[in-house]
Amino acid sequence: MCQHQPPCPSAEATDRDAAHLVASHPEQGWSLLCNGVVHFEDTGDLLPDGQVIRPCRPGRREVAGSVT
């Protein structure tokens, strides 16, 4: 799919989100990358084969006996 030189990371690569932007829809919260990945602003991805990559959210941390 990608015609860039050097080619962008494939949809299966761990750095898939480094691919070039093809279409951006910030009002809807998503972008299409040249490797076919739909990237969501919450950091989740939808791969071309339909696989869902869950958002990467920071974990909760314990501070002085309480959870924040």
Score class of each variant (00 low, 15 high):
M1R: 08
F40I: 11
F40P: 00
A64R: 15
G59W: 05
E41F: 06
A64P: 01
R57S: 09
E62D: 05
G44C: 08
G36W: 00
N35T: 11
S10G: 15
G29K: 00
D49Q: 14
R61P: 02
E27M: 08
P55T: 03
Q3H: 07
R16F: 06
V52A: 04
S24A: 06
L46N: 07
A11K: 11
L21V: 10
L46W: 04
L46F: 01
P58K: 04
E62K: 12
T43Q: 04
L33D: 03
H4P: 06
T68Q: 12
L46G: 02
V38F: 05
A13S: 15
W30N: 07
A11Q: 06
P9L: 00
H25S: 07
L21T: 06
V52K: 13
E27Q: 07
L46E: 15
W30V: 01
A13D: 15
D49M: 12
P58D: 08
R57V: 13
H4G: 10
H39P: 12
V52T: 05
V63Q: 14
C8H: 02
R60G: 13
H20Y: 08
V63C: 06
T14E: 15
L33E: 02
C2E: 07
S66R: 11
L33Q: 00
E12K: 11
P7Q: 03
L33V: 01
S24G: 01
N35G: 03
S31I: 11
C34D: 09
T68N: 11
E12Y: 06
D15E: 06
L21D: 05
F40Y: 14
M1E: 13
C8R: 01
A18E: 15
S66V: 15
R57D: 10
C8L: 12
S66D: 13
C8V: 14
V38N: 01
S66H: 10
D45P: 00
D15Y: 02
G29F: 05
V22S: 08
V52W: 13
H25T: 11
L21N: 09
V37C: 03
G65N: 06
M1I: 07
F40S: 10
R57Q: 14
Q3V: 01
D45C: 09
S24W: 00
E27C: 08
L47N: 00
A23V: 14
T14M: 14
R57H: 04
D42N: 13
L47V: 01
P9T: 05
L33K: 03
A23W: 05
Q51D: 04
A64E: 13
C56L: 04
V22Q: 03
D42Q: 02
G59P: 02
S24E: 02
C34V: 05
H20M: 11
L21S: 03
V38A: 08
M1F: 10
L32M: 09
E12C: 00
A11H: 07
L32I: 04
R16A: 02
